[in-house]
């Protein structure tokens, strides 16, 4: 089975993240760049399957600027067999629609039996790209999976919903998207890190995917303005001397909250 895992590089959520207020685009240099945790968990699903079936081929696919190479190298070090990086300045500032079109085209090129993604990234938080890719490829999509069971021809698992969970299944090929309830990813070991340097990491451009970088016919979301929210200031702070609960109740009453 050939599994393609979608990897996303994001600004580290443990640091301050910045938008460029002129363009509304992420300032990629403002914070440390890491593989999004949930896409590492997606990779772990594929690698766990590979552990049980050595014939499994795992490909890591990502779209983004040159720095994404680091994240793909890490995926290779963890155990992916090869990596594909869609790298093109024409894609700077892509919205979900462009991103999904490009990734779908790249997936057609690499071939796949199964595609695994994270449910949403920690930066955009849109949670729509896996569904869009599934539609582009005419595939079923098993989304928001808290657990995954794979066989050669099916995928099943427990899906998180609004008012509970459901048990769901699908025949392959299909797109799966997983939540951060999935097991934590493995750490690359020394052997993996050294071996990753010899594994293929292919870089492709939009024209190699035979896409028009103007994406004719595709409506897009455009940013009109970006403003930094004024910093919140702290209000009253009291040290409890036996009466703070009552004082807090008075505050809530004054705010008409009780």
């Amino acid at each position: 089975m050939k599994i393609v895992v979608l990897i996303k590089q994001v600004p580290d959520t443990y640091e301050d993240r910045k938008l460029n207020t002129a363009t509304g685009i992420l300032e990629r240099d403002a914070s440390e760049k890491v593989i999004d945790d949930v896409t590492e968990r997606a990779l772990e699903v594929a690698l766990t399957h590979k552990d049980s079936d050595k014939s499994t081929e795992v490909v890591a696919l990502s779209m983004g600027p040159a720095s994404v190479t680091d994240s793909l190298r890490k995926a290779l070090a963890s155990g992916a067999d090869s990596a594909v990086h869609v790298l093109d300045e024409a894609l700077d500032g892509s919205d979900a629609g462009w991103t999904a079109s490009v990734l779908a085209a790249a997936l057609k090129r690499t071939g796949f039996d199964l595609i695994i993604a994270g449910n949403e990234s920690t930066d955009g938080r849109g949670g729509v790209v896996p569904a869009m890719i599934a539609e582009h490829l005419g595939l079923a999509h098993l989304s928001y999976l808290n657990s995954v069971e794979l066989t050669d021809s099916t995928a099943s698992g427990v899906r998180a919903g609004e008012d509970g969970t459901s048990t769901v299944h699908v025949g392959l090929p299909a797109v799966l998207s997983v939540t951060d309830r999935l097991p934590e990813p493995r750490f690359p070991n020394f052997k993996g890190i050294m071996g990753a340097k010899k594994k293929p990491l292919e870089t492709i451009t939009v024209s190699e995917l035979e896409l028009d970088p103007a994406f004719p016919g595709l409506a897009r979301s455009v940013v009109l303005s970006t403003a930094v929210r004024p910093a919140r200031t702290s209000g009253t702070k009291v040290v409890d001397e036996g009466n703070a609960g009552v004082e807090l109740a008075e505050f809530l009453a004054a705010q008409r909250l009780i």
Partner: peptide
Amino acid sequence: NSNDSRDVAGRLAARLGAALVID
């Protein structure tokens, strides 16, 4: 902005070439 509706919105946007206005 729920799990089900995001799945619907994503697929419909891809089908129609519509833009998604997220969250």
